[in-house]
Structures are given as structure tokens and as C-alpha cells.
């Protein structure tokens, strides 16, 4: 256990030294240019800051490295489990994919899907803690933050096709909410313009109508889902509700209120 912490500090210091070396090498490749009117050559030049920073980093990193080698600091780090590492890489790769697919798939669908998956897997991981409390492994209440080793790691893929189906369902729901809000607010906007009513054609009315329409469908779908006990797993229900709700809320705030050009992707009809 303690070895992990010591090694991590050592790797951290070594990483800093490596970063400093790269920075210094890069600084030396930069063209050294001085400010206009500096005939005397007194200006330290454009290379001064990156090079100086690199040297400071190198000295500080070497000092830290030496310290870690001489007297490694005892830290109580635990080794991360396979699931934790999976979640880390999953989150990172998922975020990169999110960036690459944003324009093609569109903000609403992709955000809903991404959030659904994150909620789903994170909730699965969180259930371990609850299980441990139930089985009495957590010790006294209030010991929050104490890490527990679960019996076995939970697989990182939905074990039933239902998981995939509900993810698709969340995307359909967000698309329905968007289309309902969009169609009604757009028609109202055109109608307002043709009638010469600036109030109906205003952005505030558009936002409010969109909110009303999409919100009604969203809440209606959730209520129906609960009534017919569609979601057998509580965390699944929450994942759908939160992913669709968050995506819609962000869309309204950023795209509709602040006019940020969030791509619509496949919903751009």
C-alpha cells in the first residue's frame, strides 16, 4: 500500500524533470528575437520566459526527485481497482469521443447518451459502497471517504440488452422534447412575424414556449415510465431522467439564451 504512494511521488518528480527537459529543449529551438529599438541588445528576448521557467522547473523537479529518492514520504495511497481504472479510461476516452462526434451527432443526442452512460456506470460503482455498508464492512456510520474493496469488480459493459435499449430510449426522449419545443416555438415565431407581433416573435417567448413544450413531454414521459414501472432498476430511472434533463437544461441556457452555436447534428432538420 505505502509503496504505491512512494512510487507515485517518485514518478511525479521524475515526470516534472522530464517535462522541464522537454520545455528547455523546446525553448532552445525558439527563434531568439528582441524588441524593436533595442539596439544595445538589453532585452532578454522572446526566449527568456520559456527558458527561465524550464530551468526553474528543472531545478525544483531535481530537488524533489532527490528528496523522494533519499527519504521517500510515507503516504497512505491505496492501489486503484480494475473498475476504477476502467472508469478513468472510460471517462477520458468518452470525453475525447464526445468532442470528435459532437458536430456529426449533435449536442442533444450525444450529451444525453454520454451522460446516461456516465450516470449508469458511476451508479453501478457507487452501489458497491452501499452494499459494503449493508454488509457491515463500512464500520461505524460517518466514516465517509473510507474506501472499500468490493467482493468483485463490476463489469464495465451493460450486462443486459435492456441497458442499451434504455440508453436509446433516453436519446429518443430528448429528440422528442427538442422537436416538440422547436416546432411549436418556430411556428409561433413565424406566426408572430406574419401577424406583425414583436412579442410572439421575441426570443423570450421562444425560450418559454420551448421550455413549456419540451418540459411537458419530459415530465410526462417520466411520470408514465414510473406509473407503468417501466424502469426495473432505480438507478436506471435516475440515469434517464438526469441525462435528458441536464442535456435539455444546458441546451436552453447555452443555445437558446446565450446563443452559443451548439451543433444540432442529426436533429438539424
Amino acid at each position: 500500500m505505502k509503496r504505491t504512494g512512494n512510487r507515485r511521488n517518485l514518478w511525479g518528480a521524475a515526470g516534472m524533470v522530464l517535462a522541464a527537459t522537454i520545455l528547455i529543449s523546446y525553448s532552445l529551438t525558439l527563434e531568439q528575437r528582441r524588441m524593436i529599438g533595442d539596439e544595445g541588445g538589453h532585452d532578454p528576448g522572446s526566449r527568456a520566459l520559456p527558458l527561465g521557467s524550464g530551468l526553474v522547473m528543472l531545478f525544483a523537479g531535481l530537488y524533489d526527485l532527490g528528496k523522494q529518492i533519499r527519504s521517500p514520504k510515507k503516504q497512505d495511497h491505496r492501489k486503484s481497482s480494475r473498475t476504477e481504472r476502467g472508469l478513468f479510461w472510460g471517462t477520458l476516452v468518452g470525453s475525447i469521443l464526445y468532442l470528435f462526434l459532437l458536430e456529426r451527432v449533435g449536442f442533444l443526442i450525444l450529451t444525453t447518451l454520454f451522460l446516461f452512460l456516465l450516470f449508469f456506470f458511476y451508479s453501478k460503482e457507487a452501489e458497491k459502497g452501499k452494499e459494503a455498508v449493508k454488509t457491515g464492512k463500512a464500520g461505524q456510520s460517518g466514516e465517509a471517504g473510507k474506501h472499500l474493496e468490493a467482493e468483485k469488480d463490476i463489469p464495465l459493459l451493460p450486462h443486459t440488452p435492456a441497458g442499451v435499449a434504455i440508453g436509446v430510449l433516453a436519446c429518443v426522449l430528448v429528440a422528442l422534447c427538442y422537436l416538440a419545443g422547436r416546432i411549436v416555438s418556430r411556428e409561433l415565431f413565424y406566426w408572430g412575424r406574419s401577424m406583425g407581433s414583436p412579442v410572439l416573435a421575441s426570443r423570450t417567448v421562444s425560450v418559454l414556449v420551448f421550455l413549456l413544450m419540451s418540459g411537458s413531454i419530459y415530465l410526462g414521459a417520466l411520470l408514465i415510465g414510473r406509473r407503468i414501472a417501466f424502469f426495473k432498476v432505480r438507478s436506471m430511472e435516475w440515469s434517464v431522467a438526469l441525462s435528458v434533463g441536464t442535456a435539455l437544461a444546458l441546451f436552453i441556457v447555452f443555445r437558446m439564451i446565450f446563443r452559443v452555436a451548439l451543433p444540432l447534428g442529426i436533429l438539424d432538420l
Binding site: 486503484s80 481497482s81 473498475t83 476504477e84 472508469l87 478513468f88 471517462t91 477520458l92 470525453s95 458511476y122 460503482e125 457507487a126 458497491k128 459502497g129 452501499k130 459494503a132 455498508v133 464492512k137 463500512a138 464500520g139 456510520s141 460517518g142 466514516e143 465517509a144 471517504g145 473510507k146 474506501h147 472499500l148 468490493a150
Partner: peptide, 17 residues
């Protein structure tokens, strides 16, 4: 973002009552 990555191990921590 770094907070999200750093907090991932806390997901399986026993919840405080």
C-alpha cells in the same frame, strides 16, 4: 475536469450517514 478524475475513487466509498 481534474476534480472529476480525482473523485472517481470516491464513488465506491461508503456513504456517510
Amino acid at each position: 475536469v481534474s476534480q472529476v478524475f480525482a473523485d472517481l475513487p470516491r464513488l465506491s466509498a461508503a456513504p456517510g450517514e
